[in-house]
Amino acid sequence: MPKLYTFLKYFFVILWACFVIAPFLWAISTSFKDFNSVTGGATYIPWLQFEPTLDGWSVLFKPGSQGGINIIGPYFNSIFVTLTASLISIVLGTLAAYALSRYTFKAGFVKNNDITFFFISQRIMPPVVLSIPFFLFLSTLGLLDSLAGLILVYIVLLMPIAVWIMVDFFNRVPKEIDETALIDGCNPFQAFFKVVLPNSVPGMLVAGLFCIIFGWIDFFFAFILTFTKVQLLPVKIVALNSSITPWWSLSAAALVSVAPLIIVAFIVERYLSKGNLSGALK
């Protein structure tokens, strides 16, 4: 029985790993092709099956006048917007989540759970229709086509995620921790910052990871709310979709755009593995 389980476990994990990797391998191979290698049928191994070329990659770094998109500026814009918006969302979200987890709110029929749901429900609305009101809103503030405007919008997108994850997290942090601190003479803020917060780093990391991911992969708002001065990475990459879909440069772009997040994934995994989470919750 355990042996069978072990076998099935490895079988399934390896199978899933192959499924996860397959499109990336295909993208790596495709990124070195050109029009003729793509239209000639599926091939996989460079030199053996097709003549590799770096055209797909060089497009990412050339200016538009040479048929490229030059992603370097947008790359840093994306990093800046994502990190700033995530940070603000985490701070605000953690505070709100702590309140929702530890205190009781009641206003008519509205209770804690309803407020939590209100936060999450902000993500239900399909972005398409929000585009016009957001456009007018930012236009009134004079923040169209600016990093600040995008950060503002992303806070709305990201804070619900932070609230939701942190409420769940705080619910599992024993109340005794805060109570001990309060008995020791801290006021609620000191208790939160000195005792609860240090124990919440793992939860905030997971929430942060989600915020970064959802910020990083957003295309729609970045597309509608910017014109020329500010461009984010996904918008820039999508500008490769001309009459011909360039399989090669889009493959290269997909790989380049996922790269920084893999580093984030390593950091989060490290924290999870160290068992900090379970340590905090003892």
Partner: peptide, 20 residues
């Protein structure tokens, strides 16, 4: 001058080239 044009390269590349 600000221009919104088509994706690279169809129309997009000549727009950028002539802009330069």
């Amino acid at each position: 001058l600000t221009i919104n044009t088509h994706a690279i390269p169809v129309m997009g590349e000549p727009t950028a080239l002539h802009a330069e």
